[in-house]
Amino acid sequence: MSRTTLFVLLGIFAVVLIFGYTAVIPTNNEPRAVPTNTPGAAAGGGDEAGEGGDSSGAAAAGQSIYDAQCAACHTTDGSDSIGPTWQGLIGSEIALADGSTVVADEEYITESIRQPAAKVHDGFQPIMPVFELNDDDIASLIAFMQSLE
């Protein structure tokens, strides 16, 4: 290997090492498109939804919460993942792990978010963590579920 080649290669190495690991590259620090905590999600969703009572706005707010906190385990396309799909879930009759059945109404959805182990959907592991969402957030999530037809 010629000395020039070695100089060039070591130079590239040094540049990558020094500047690569010290340079601060500006990133887009605008407010995140997706909320990372529930109160923020509710506030952002509320703004988008206007003064409330707008079901499509509530559904949009619900989708934001879904994207941030639920999508890792629940799909909206009808395929089951770690948890049951949300498509067609609301209002349906579902079998529970203890052999009984229940209608997935608003009361059941609320309970399942706050106490996931209370009534476990048959065929799924009881591994869902507790999500302490407020009433508005849950209402938004239910509106989002209702929009999934």
């Binding site: 190495f13 990558v16 690569g20 690991y21």
Partner: peptide, 20 residues
């Protein structure tokens, strides 16, 4: 020879990505 250099430069780039 080229293999060693490519690996070293590759991992510096890779790890910069992971670390940041």
């Amino acid at each position: 020879l080229a293999q060693g250099w490519l690996w070293a430069l590759g991992v510096l780039t890779f790890s910069r990505g992971q670390i940041s």
